[in-house]
Amino acid sequence: MTMLDVRTWTAVCRYDLLQPERGAAALVGDVQVALFRTHDGAVHALSNRDPFSGAQVLSRGIVGTRGDVPTVASPMHKQVFDLRTGVCLDEPDTAVAVFGVRVRDGVVEVSSP
């Protein structure tokens, strides 16, 4: 069965502007998105807002792995989030929004969560 992707995509930046294993913030409308390019070339997009401090800083965390899970650690108080699901691995009751993300013609595009 083929499904039609009806989400709206916004182009944010060229893929090669993203440094491997480092995040970057993007402004989509008035929403702040944290983009991460991992070691294997994949791109993930989470809300930039650190739910624990309320500050828009997740894109500035350290990217890494926990077991097989690709992660980012909040730069504020070091809670670790799953880049794929947005779930906080240290406090699984807390999660941040995950945005759709794809790369088309070398350009990174983000959709609403």
């Binding site: 500035r60 350290i62 504020m76």
Partner: peptide, 19 residues
Amino acid sequence: QATLQDTNDQFLANIQRDG
């Protein structure tokens, strides 16, 4: 090396509570 740094070293400044 740039990707290894904590945010403070990444921006050569100290992050505050509001970012």
